[in-house]
Design a protein around this nucleic acid. Structure first.
Lengths: 269, 269
DNA sequence: ACAATAGTGTCTGTGAGACAGTATGTC
DNA sequence: GACATACTGTCTCACAGACACTATTGT
């Protein structure tokens, strides 16, 4: 293999020593989820019930040999070096599974960070991804792991932390990417179960974006069922399914699900 | 789980020799422009007047030493190795200037290509960008350069060519990215002059996207001036400017320009 | 006057926005 | 029955879509 490689090098006059190559190729992943807000009193509605949260890891202050760790003690996005046989996207998937134990979750690439100086170890490239993990999946993991070095933060909390590398910017961009995608695609479905109540969908949207249609409850209940990518969930007899009433919710609500049609919202329409 | 720990330890005790690093970091750029269609007869309207075109370079069959060049003879996107002191984005800007002589043009990153095997020389990463260059700027360059190794192709022509590396996919993704951005942002302004006629804007849009509003001429003339990101171009006396009538255009048309407001089209609206 | 391009008027249906009202459950 | 939650009716206004019509120039 390497013989072939040098042969190729000679063939087309490619000499890797003539170009400096990167010192590292990494993949970072911003794992988003929703956490419930503690509600002060039974008070009226109007407050959003959930907050968008991000999973961060605390970098150890010292490594295994007792040497000070790079960016030690700071909070950072989960990530790591990409193996040559995998792509950045596959590496992100692998890291997500290592961190949360979940698989088959929505992951999206949103940025490249390659400015010399962003990592003191050299010319280290990073591909940034975001993932959306339903609440339930992350809960169990957080309990299982050391509460100290893996933690969920609301976005307000995140930006007040001491963050490693250029992760302040990387996280800011992640948030922007998620918001944009929630506006323009149906990614929001990844925060929900397959079948969901309209009010749950509305609460999730309220936690992430600010849109007049979503803010108005009657408006949203009118609009949402007529959207081309949302349909009623039907049982085997083609009868609309309803959720079980709980202690807080009196009347059973209908269940809906997303259908896969790709909509491109247009500024010209 | 313990797997995670050891991996973390390894990461913290970073030793670059323990990880394979990429063999090259490159930046490719898909340079789009519009070329006029030769109109068969004076016939009625209905045909679009322009076609989207892409600038490609023909890779030399042999290098300076007379050795066969890698992917020689095939058409490819302009691109090259990224210097350590620049980012992928800056490299794309530099390459755009080298190829077309133009500077300060809209460039956008749209993809990462890092699958092992895409380049026989090794683990070569590529960041893909697209750029939009107004017709006029590329005309002069094409004439100045060898007509043989730099050429504009319509998109239909491009996909019938023998393309180097994985550039078929890279170009397909570029086209998709441009189309999406034309739908969702005001990038289309980069195909036009600062001040433009509505019919020109409409022709440009027709060449790139298919939208009912744009297809209907009266509909577009009604809608466009009321869009929040388009305003009439006014002269010093606050009087709307008009274009000079030419031989083909009889009545002078008003001039418009884009204003910088960022609109996020929403699927929820 | 005529041709060609650049727009505008008008009609109709659908949908957004506001807000009050009704339906369906629990206690 | 009281109450909370889940919707729905209705009204107004604006805009999308279709298509015919007017306006302004060059020749």
């Amino acid at each position: 293999m390497s013989k072939f490689k040098t042969e190729e090098d000679a063939l087309q006059n490619y000499d890797s020593s003539r170009y400096r190559t990167p010192d590292g190729y990494t993949s970072d992943i911003a794992i988003f989820t929703l956490i419930p807000n503690e509600e002060s009193t039974v008070g009226s509605e109007s407050t959003s019930h959930h907050s968008l949260a991000l999973m961060l890891i605390k970098r150890a202050a010292f490594d295994a040999e007792g040497e000070p760790n790079i960016e030690g003690g700071k909070w950072a996005l989960p990530g790591g070096f990409i193996h040559p046989e995998e792509t950045a996207y596959e590496a992100a998937k692998r890291e997500l599974k290592e961190e949360t134990g979940v698989d088959g979750i929505h992951i999206e690439h949103y940025g490249v960070y390659d400015k010399l100086g962003r990592d003191k170890r050299g010319w280290i490239l990073s591909n940034a991804h975001y993932a959306i993990v339903p609440e339930e999946n992350i809960k169990s993991r957080e309990a299982a792991d050391d509460a100290d070095d893996v933690q969920l933060f609301t976005m307000d909390e995140v930006f007040a932390l001491d963050l490693a590398f250029d992760h302040y910017q990387v996280i800011k961009d992640a948030l922007e990417a998620v918001r944009k995608d929630v506006f323009q695609t149906t990614v929001v479905k990844n925060f929900l179960t397959e079948e969901f109540k309209l009010e749950d969908l509305r609460q999730v949207l309220l936690a992430i974006i600010n849109d007049p249609v979503v803010n108005s409850k009657p408006g949203f209940f009118r609009k949402a069922p007529r959207l081309p990518f949302i349909v009623e969930a039907l049982d085997n007899n083609q009868v609309p399914k309803t959720a079980e009433p709980t202690s807080t919710t009196k009347r059973p609500s209908k269940l809906y699900r997303f259908v896969d049609v790709d909509i491109i919202p247009s500024i010209w329409r």
